Simulated assay, not measured.
Amino acid sequence: MEGQFENPLVIGKTAVPRCFRNINVKSLPVTWRFNKKAWMTSALFTEWVKDLNSKMKRAGRNVLLLLDNAPSHPVDLNLSNVKLLFLPANTTAKLQPLDQGIIQDMKQFYRKRLLRSVLAKIDDESVVSAESVSKSLNVLDAVQWVNSSIKDVKADTVTKCFRKAGFKESLFASDSVVVDDDDDDDDEDDNVPIQELVELMRVANKKISLGDTMTVKEYLDVDSNIPNGEDLSENWESDLLQTHKNTESEPVDSDSDDECSGVAPTPEPICDLKTHQDALKCIDQLKVYCMNKDLGSVSAMFSRAGEELEKLSVDALCSTLFL
């Protein structure tokens, strides 16, 4: 069972962002939830972990869930098949396997997809502003990148991170994953995502007007200081009540979601395909159509096709820039 991930939980700001208008939200490759701040809350965590408990009960499994002491993690949940283990304060960076490289690995895959998608949409002769780049992205893209990036995290990476966090070797007796001690620090495959990201950043720094040149580390950590969970401020009770009221009154199809402000209405079908960019627009429309018809496997196929086309487009761009 090592290296298996649950369906990702993604939290946005509205029930149905504009870029979700033509699709069935239940057909997304993630579990979509929302609140005004796009934060993890105790209510959302409780719903998620109870669903996990029901799944484990049906499968006849018992699992251990390692958690920090964030306010969004209730300590009084009564679960039959999921045991919650809260790590001591200020030890998460050392004892939480996710923090030993799993999150970082997933972020590398995600940011590689994001940057490659942006660069694939830029004409060979163009240099674009950061503002125009932000308008070319939407939440639907992010949801698909999250799902694909988690699947790219290898089982032996997960095992290594558990071992690094101090878990006993007896936990990894399964035949499904074999990890060589000699490969822990110098596995060349582990460096592939970061090497690809370095190359993409070279192109980005030439094709996107960023002001100052951005390093790969700065790009990976660009959102590290953004709050992602509720805190216990002095007025936390009234704030939580107000958030609940606002969420209840949220229109289903909101035009206020600034996450999708750069997304135009569904464009007219393109009949004359001359460039990679034209083809990518068509693939995007096909993905939306498939999700609207609950054709998840077909949508995933088009997503993979889109990624391959983006790679070709960026490779062509690189050959132009670095001849």
Rank of each mutant, 00 (worst) to 15 (best):
M1E: 15
E2C: 09
Q4G: 14
L9M: 05
I11F: 05
A15P: 07
N22M: 09
N24T: 12
L28I: 02
T31L: 05
W39N: 04
T41S: 07
A43T: 12
F45S: 03
T46P: 02
E47L: 13
E47F: 10
V49M: 03
D51Q: 14
R61S: 10
R61A: 10
N62E: 11
L64P: 04
L65V: 11
N69I: 00
A70F: 12
P71V: 01
P71I: 00
H73C: 04
H73D: 06
P74L: 02
N78C: 10
L79H: 02
N81E: 07
K83P: 00
F86A: 01
N90T: 01
T92Y: 04
T92I: 00
P97F: 00
L98K: 03
Q100W: 05
Q100I: 01
D105L: 01
D105R: 14
M106Y: 14
F109K: 07
K112V: 00
L119A: 03
D123L: 12
D123E: 15
E125V: 07
S126P: 03
E131Y: 08
S132V: 15
S132H: 14
S136C: 12
V139I: 12
D141V: 02
D141K: 08
Q144R: 15
W145H: 11
W145M: 13
N147G: 09
S148Y: 13
D152C: 15
T157K: 09
G166T: 06
E169H: 14
D175K: 13
D175T: 11
S176K: 14
D182V: 09
D187Y: 08
N191F: 15
M201T: 04
R202D: 14
R202S: 11
V203T: 07
N205I: 01
I208P: 05
S209I: 14
S209P: 13
L210N: 00
G211K: 03
M214E: 04
D221Y: 03
E230F: 07
E230L: 12
D231H: 14
D231W: 13
D239I: 01
L241K: 14
Q242M: 13
T247A: 15
D255Y: 06
C260K: 03
C260L: 02
S261T: 08
G262T: 00
V263F: 10
P265H: 06
L273Y: 03
H276M: 02
K287S: 11
M291V: 08
D294P: 01
G296F: 08
V298P: 11
L309G: 06
E310P: 03
S313R: 07
V314G: 13
D315Y: 11
L321R: 06
F322W: 08
